[in-house]
């Protein structure tokens, strides 16, 4: 399990989950954008076979597009809890699909419940994770992934 494997599996997972669940065409961006703004991060722990995490940094305009598409409702008409639940379910699906993509369908793994996190400082080993940027038909978002071997 190399950093390259992990990155490839994440790129494939994001592209397929976004196209099948959120109906947005995503493309991996090799170069980090100069200005990347976000207000909220979504976090999920990977427990086994090795520990790590996946973090999604989604800008507000993209969060709106995602939630409005999935629920087919106006963002303003939705409760904060519904919005969080929607985004966390997507992260949950990303995490499951990522582990299957990385380890194959024959491997066992365990992940935690996803959570909304407002403070990056609480996350350990953030500097060790890989930053992967995507374009979602315009808006840019980032996924950080770490899997300790």
């Amino acid at each position: 399990m190399t950093e390259e494997n992990i990155k490839e599996a994440m790129i494939k997972t994001i592209e397929s989950v976004f196209s099948d669940m959120v109906f947005i065409d995503t493309l991996h961006i090799e170069k980090s954008p100069e200005n990347f703004d976000y207000t909220q991060i979504l976090y999920i722990d990977i427990i086994s076979p090795s520990n790590g995490y996946i973090i999604a940094y989604l800008p507000l305009d993209l969060r709106k597009t995602i939630v409005e598409t999935i629920h087919s409702t106006d963002w303003d008409e939705m409760h904060a809890s519904e919005i969080d639940d929607c985004l966390l379910e997507i992260l949950n699906v990303i995490a499951g699909n990522f582990m299957t993509e990385l380890l194959g369908r024959g491997a066992k793994y365990n992940i935690s419940f996803p959570a909304v996190n407002y403070d990056e400082e609480d996350i350990e080993q953030l500097d060790k994770s890989q930053e992967i940027y995507f374009s979602a038909e315009g808006p840019i978002f980032r996924i950080n992934v770490l899997l300790n071997s």
Binding site: S19, F23, I24, D25, T69, S72, E137
Partner: peptide, 15 residues
């Protein structure tokens, strides 16, 4: 790919 996704998105939003 984008055409396929756009079709599904339009349909999904319309139930």
């Amino acid at each position: 790919k984008r055409n396929g996704i756009a079709v599904k998105r339009y349909l999904w939003k319309n139930g």
